[in-house]
Each structure stands twice: as structure tokens, then as C-alpha cells.
Design a protein around this nucleic acid. Structure first.
Ligand code: MN
Ligand code: MN
Ligand code: ZN
Ligand code: ZN
Lengths: 145, 145
DNA sequence: CTCCTAGATCGTAATTATTCCGATCTAATT
DNA sequence: AATTAGATCGGAATAATTACGATCTAGGAG
């Protein structure tokens, strides 16, 4: 998904295209990874020093409602956001020490179809699946804080 | 798992058994569901009015390190804790409106074994798998806040 | 049983993350 | 160019979590 595609999509949905929103999207589309709200704020401030957390959060939640952004809630209460690249739905292998992550090649679709059958009255909108542990570098250092 | 079993386990591990810790365990063992830190504080305060958040959080993290408690991080940044009943490992179907949940009958074990093979250098310690949406009661009310 | 001490708790303050809000601004339509 | 619904800013408010010094106590030694 390119920036222009995304902007077109927003325009179609009747959402205003502001420079701040464009800049937030540029960050999210820049590297294919997840970001904290603060990381996004810092990056956007390089171009627009006056931008506020309010704008970042409002934009992220807007994009989430539109299905363009995914919210990730990791162990320890760490909240992250990443662009929802079409056909690139994925989950993460997250190191509890350094926070680095790798994409997982696998999504529990069989569980999902089973649960849909078992709970037909429940309107499923999303799911999360993350695996935690320690990467090679951080093994043995778990207890050193 | 009963309270006495758990206390014995803690004793074996060289952890002090305080009345506050016992009370927190009683809450967690009482109903087989997850709790917020605040819910636990309130319940424990019924017996020990002076107990503090500090004690609740420290105890929860202690129990988590010992594998007796699981930390759940739901959409919206909601953090919950539940007792890790042996052989009752499970995941949740969570309503985004009312917060009520149901146990899932299914754990993505095939994904997990696959990931272990693909990332033998990574030391996996835990995983999360939650499904979100709207329960029957809350359907159609999603947008009413 | 009493003493001792490492570790636990309390009370409160500090920190962090997120949300709220009134004043001002602006994208997009007319 | 004027209009206005919706967006942004700056800062305050709220909520969640962590920190810390003073005090207390569980559990082991004697
Ligand atoms: Mn990712
Ligand atoms: Mn549960
Ligand atoms: Zn998936
Ligand atoms: Zn599982």
C-alpha cells in the first residue's frame, strides 16, 4: 500500500486530509514495523514541531476504526500501532528484554474457523496472537532488568 | 489448584506467606476469571483496608514470575490478571463493548510447534491468543460508546 | 519463646500513558 | 472568497503504574 493509495482511500471515506495525518501515515508506511505513539510523535515533530499527542492518538484511532492500522497490546502493557498492509496480516515473536520482534509466518486460522462455528452469535472483528520469549542476544540476561 | 496447594508451592520456593498475599490469592482462586489490579485491590481491602496498589502489583508480578498468574493485555490497553490453573491453559473471546469474556476451547498449538522449529534460537516463554468482537447483547451498539 | 533480619507493606509522591477541552485554525465545499 | 464542520494546539486532567523512605513482620536461629 502506497501513501497515495491510502490518501485516496481516506478521501473516498470523506475524511479530511491534513498535513499532520499525511505525515503520520508516512511514518507508518516508512518501515514495515510497529511504533509506539511516542515514536510516531517524535518522527512527525521533525517536520511539524507543534504536533500534539492528541493529534497522534486521534489519528491512530481513526485509522484503526477504518481498518488501516492495527493496535498491538504486548506483555507489560506496551501498546504499539502498525499499518495494516493488505494481505500481510501477521503476528509477532517478541523479545521480552530488548523488545525487538520478528514477523510470524503463521496465523491460527483453524482455531478461528472453529470458534466461529462454536460461537455463531458472537460478531468477531479481530484477533491477536503473539509469542513471547528471549532472542538469542538476550538469553541469560532475562533477570538483569 | 487450591489455596493450600498454592501456599505450599510458595513456601517451597522460599517466598514469604503474608496475609495480604493469601488474600490476593483467595481473590484470584475464588472465581475462575480474570481481574483488573483495581478489582483485586478493592476485594482485598474488604478484609485489609490498608492494603496498597504497590502490594497488589508486586504480588501479581511475583506470581507471574513464578508462573502462577497470567497477564492479559486486551485491546484498548486493558490489563488483566488471572490465576494460571494447571492444565487449564486457555484463551478468550472478549466483547469490545461490555468487556465480558468466554473461555476459548482452542489453543494454536500447531502454530506454536511450527514457530519453535522455524526459530530454534528463540527461547519461547509464553504466548497470547485472544479473539475480539461483540457479544449478542452488544451487537448494533458498537458505536454508542 | 524471643530475637533478628531480609524482605514485605504502607502511605504517598512521582512518573507515564492517555484522554479531555476550550480556543483557534483550516480543508474542502460552495 | 466565504463558510463551516471538523481538525489541531497547548495544556490541564485523569488513569495506570512505579518508586521510595519509614515501618513492620514472617520465618529462621538460638
Ligand atoms: Mn508487524
Ligand atoms: Mn480466563
Ligand atoms: Zn491472525
Ligand atoms: Zn495457548
Amino acid at each position: 500500500m502506497t501513501l497515495n493509495d491510502t490518501l485516496l482511500r481516506l478521501k473516498t471515506l470523506g475524511v479530511k486530509i491534513t498535513p499532520q495525518r499525511q505525515e503520520i501515515l508516512k511514518v507508518l508506511l516508512g518501515e514495515e514495523r510497529y511504533y509506539s505513539a511516542e515514536e510516531i510523535l517524535k518522527k512527525v515533530q521533525e517536520r511539524y514541531p507543534a504536533v500534539s499527542f492528541d493529534t497522534v492518538y486521534r489519528t491512530l484511532y481513526l485509522l484503526k476504526r477504518l481498518g488501516l492500522v492495527v493496535e498491538l497490546n504486548f506483555q507489560g502493557g506496551h501498546r504499539r500501532f502498525e499499518f495494516n498492509h493488505e494481505d500481510k496480516h501477521h503476528h509477532h515473536l517478541v523479545c521480552l528484554k530488548c523488545g525487538k520482534s520478528q514477523k510470524l509466518s503463521c496465523c491460527p486460522t483453524d482455531c478461528l474457523t472453529r470458534i466461529k462455528k462454536e460461537h455463531p452469535e458472537f460478531a468477531i472483528t479481530s484477533h491477536s496472537f503473539e509469542i513471547y520469549g528471549y532472542c538469542r542476544k538476550c538469553q541469560g540476561l532475562e533477570s538483569l532488568g
